[in-house]
Amino acid sequence: MVLLIGVLISERASRTILSTAVLFLLAGFVLGEGVLDVVPIASGDPIVGTLAELALFSVLFTDGMKVGWQDLRSAWRLPGRALLLGLPLTLLVTAVLAHYVAGLPWLESFLLGAVLAPTDPVFASAIVGRKEVPGKLRHLLNVESGVNDGLALPIVLVLLAVAGGTETEGWALAGEILLGIVVGVVVPLVVITLDRLPFLKAESKLQPLLTVSIGLLVLAICSATHANLFLGAFSAGITVASRGPEYRREFEQFGELVTELLKLAAILVFGALITPDFLFQEIPLLGWVFAVLAIVAARPAALLVSFIGANLPGKQRLAAMWFGPKGFASVVYGLLVLESGIVQADYVFHLVGLVIVLSILAHSSTDVVIARQFDDEDARQPTT
């Protein structure tokens, strides 16, 4: 029923402050244990981790296909600033806020900063999807969000290992990360090479399933070899986009629909975990102050520094600084922290959950309003 309502209002949502993401989040909250108890889900239930894992794998796979090497080479300066300078600065500012405002120890503060550093433009789809928004800004947000999930993941894994939250440490952890990248590169190369042999060729109507088979094969091999499946997914997406752009085009619509379905389902489940007690009793006042500052101060301050000397108009600069919505990567990384059992795991997860809730509400309700501020002259500016 929630999916049906979301689809029926999606066209209007694309033109107003309505948001399907907010709809699923609120539906999960109302249907969860804290209100109607229709969907009795707890954080330790297997379905939570499995659904979040599949959703993030799908997100990273499709995100990787948006940022092939050719895309990065065509206009890399602004995304490069946001990724190589903005991402570490966002992590650092968030960690400082977590330590001095929320009261977390330094290690857990940096872990929280790494969890909250990635962005997800799906919650600000009017910005990246509207033609009146300048192409330079859309390209910046698309590339940044497509890459920063994968860049933040190794940092989260290393910090979790240092905090004692994983059984894999040191060289074994590095091996899992490296093996995931290798699997993500080798599998697509082999499959694409096979498909291009003269005696092997996928039927045109089944061509999108070839890319699906690549994703499933990467998932299976990573699971069997204990390679990091998220980095495997991200590497596989980039490899497909770089080695066979035609596969990306054929997979695009089907892949986006599957990913969107998994993401909305994950939001629903995540909303069911957010109870009234979760928000108003288990998070102190300083936790709320931290959550607000993490949204309105951390990323804007980081990108303000990153864009010094950049060729980006002021209006677009402000939009990029504001639109850093927290999404599925942060949800899944937060669940990884919760399941790790480290000393501050519960408090860190509560702060992650609160920031994501506030981010979804704030960014999904302001994307259309800000998108309308750009006129046709801005939209015709080049993307390079």
Rank of each mutant, 00 (worst) to 15 (best):
M1R: 13
M1T: 14
I5V: 14
T16R: 05
L18I: 11
S19F: 11
S19H: 09
L23N: 10
L25N: 01
L25R: 09
V35G: 11
I41M: 01
G44E: 15
G44C: 12
E53K: 15
A55D: 05
F61Q: 02
G64H: 09
K66D: 04
P79M: 05
R81D: 09
L83S: 04
T90R: 01
V96P: 03
G103R: 10
P105S: 07
L107T: 06
F110Q: 01
G113I: 06
P118I: 01
F123N: 04
E132F: 14
E132A: 14
K136E: 13
S145D: 03
V147Q: 05
L151I: 04
P154Y: 13
V162A: 11
E176M: 11
I177E: 03
I177Y: 03
G184E: 02
V186E: 02
I192Q: 01
T193C: 11
L206K: 00
I214G: 01
I214R: 00
L219V: 07
A224W: 10
S235V: 01
G237Y: 00
E250K: 14
G255C: 07
L268N: 06
V269E: 08
T275C: 10
F278Q: 04
L279V: 13
L286A: 14
I295N: 03
A297S: 14
P300W: 02
P300L: 05
K315W: 08
Q316K: 11
A320P: 04
A320L: 09
W322I: 06
V343R: 11
A345H: 00
G353A: 12
L358Y: 06
L358Q: 00
F374S: 11
D375E: 13
D375Y: 06
D378W: 13
